[in-house]
Write a protein that binds this DNA or RNA. Sequence first.
DNA 1: CCGCGCGTAGAATAATTCTTCCAAATTCGG
DNA 2: CCGAATTTGGAAGAATTATTCTACGCGCGG
Lengths: 281, 281
Amino acid sequence: MDRGEILAAPKNFEVLRELILERRRELPKRLAQVAAFALDHPDEIAFGTAASIAGAADVQPSTLVRFSQAFGFDGFSALQTVFRARLRERNSSYEDRLAELESGDAAPAGSAAILGSFIAAAHRSLDNLGTAIDPKRFESATITLASARTIHLIARRRSYPIATYMAYALSQLKIRCQIAGTASGIDDDLLAMADPGDAAFAISFSSYAPETIAQASALAARGIPIVSLTDSAFSPLAECSTVWFELVEADHAGFRSLSASMAFAMALAVAIAEERRRTQN
Amino acid sequence: MDRGEILAAPKNFEVLRELILERRRELPKRLAQVAAFALDHPDEIAFGTAASIAGAADVQPSTLVRFSQAFGFDGFSALQTVFRARLRERNSSYEDRLAELESGDAAPAGSAAILGSFIAAAHRSLDNLGTAIDPKRFESATITLASARTIHLIARRRSYPIATYMAYALSQLKIRCQIAGTASGIDDDLLAMADPGDAAFAISFSSYAPETIAQASALAARGIPIVSLTDSAFSPLAECSTVWFELVEADHAGFRSLSASMAFAMALAVAIAEERRRTQN
DNA sequence: CCGCGCGTAGAATAATTCTTCCAAATTCGG
DNA sequence: CCGAATTTGGAAGAATTATTCTACGCGCGG
C-alpha cells in the first residue's frame, strides 16, 4: 500500500481539490469515479451520508472509505469534514488569506496579522450582508424613510458611529435628520417632538442599550414607523420595528468592526435620497 | 401533547424562520433558547450533531428533539434537513448573486442595486487596504500609540464616526483616549493639555477639515507623535505626521462608505491593546 | 494456460448518533 | 400554600451510519 505516500490529508478544500485533479489519472476505476463525483457534486459529499453518496455515485460505501484513505484521511468522515468546512466559510479566497495570516509562521508581525484578520472578517461580513438582506424589505425601508419629514437616528455605544455617519451623509444629501444619543437628557425631549410624519432608524447590537430600545418603542407606540438594524431576530428592537434587518458582523477574536454596517448605512442613505428625488420631481 | 397543532413541518427555511419568530413568545424557556440559537447560528444546526449543537446551545439533546417536534417535525433530523437545504441553495446561487452585484448596475430593483454597489465598493476598498498598508508602518504606528499615556483622536465630518468608534473600542480595551471634534470651543483647550507622553491619531479625507489639520499640526509642533489616516500622500495631514497611512475608499457614484476605514480603525485599536499587553506584562 | 496481485463488492462489525421514556423540577391556577 | 399540568434533565435503547474484513473477479505476466 505504501508507495511512499505519507501525504498528510489536506484540511483545506482548495488544496484537496488540486490534489484530486492531479492524481485523478492514476486512480483505479472506482476511485476515479468517486473523484469525478466529488468534484462535480461537492455539496452532496458535504451533506450526504456515506450510503446516500455511494448510491448517487454508484459505488459501494466502502469505496468511499478507501478513497478517503487514499488521500490520507482517517476515514470518510474526515474527508467529509473538509467538504463541510468549505460550505461554512463561503468565501474561500478571503478565508484562505486569513488562514495564511493566522497560521503564517512567516510571522508578519503581530499587528499586521491583526489587520489581516479584520480585513478578512470584514469581507465575510459584507458577503453575509449581500445574502442576508432581502431586497424587498430594503426597498420598503427606503420608502418608509424617504417619506418621513425628519428621520430620527437612534443608537448608542457601538452603534453610535453608524448614526453619526448617517447624520453626516443625510445632511449632505439635504435630508433632515435628528440624532439621538448625545447628551442623555435632551434626547427624550427631542424625540417627544417627533410627529407621525417622521420616521426613525434605530441601530442596536448584541447587549442592547436600554435607552435605544426604550426610545424606539416609545416612538413606535406613537405610531411613528421604525426601521432598525440589529444582529438577531430576537432583538428587542425587532419587535417594535416596522421593518428590521438582521446583520451579523464577523469578528476577530470577539472584536467586531462595523464595516458591513457602514456599507449598509451608506447604501440606505443614498437609496433614500434617490427615492426622494424620484418621487418629488 | 396535541394542543390542536397539526401544523405541517415547513419544508422551506424561510417559512420555518417565520414560524419560529411568530411562536417564540409562547415557547417554554429551553425551547426558546433553542429557537434563539437556531436563528442566530443556522450553520451550526446544519452541520453539527445533535450532541454538539446541544452543547453549544447549552441544552440537552432531547430538548432539540422536542423543539423539532413542537414545530411539526418527526425528529431532530428532519428539522436539520431544512437547515441543510437552505445552505445548499444559498451556496449554489451565491456565485450568481456575487456576479450580479459586481457586474454593476445590472438588474435588481433600484434601492437593492444601490446596496449591491456599496457592498462591491466596500470589497474593493478592503482589498485595497490589504495591499496598500505596509505591515512595518502599521507595526510602528501600533507601537507609537501603545506607548502613549492618552491617545487623542482628531477627526471631523466624514471621519468623525471613525473616531467615535475608536473611542468606544479603546475604552472597552481600557485604553485612555480623548476625542476631539465635539463642541468646537472645548477641543483646543483639551488638546492644549496634551503632554509629550501622549500621542494622537488623526483622520481626514478629501476636502480636509481645517480644524483637524490645525489641531494635528499644533500637537506635532509640541513634539507629540501623530499617526494619521488620510486619502492622499499629498494630504496636509501627512506632512505633520510621524506615521501616516493612505487609504482610498472605493465609491458608488461618488459616495464613499467607511467600511475599510472601520476595519483599519478596529485593527489598530486591537493591535494597540495587544502591544500593551505584551510589553506591560 | 495458469498463478499472482491488485481492486472491488458485500456483509459483518463497531461506532456514532438520534430518539424515547420516566422521574424530578418547575410553573401556574386555585 | 397545595395540587395538577407542563417542562426539563438524564440515561437507556433503537436506529442509523461508518468502517473493517473476507472472498471473489479481473487483468497481467510468466
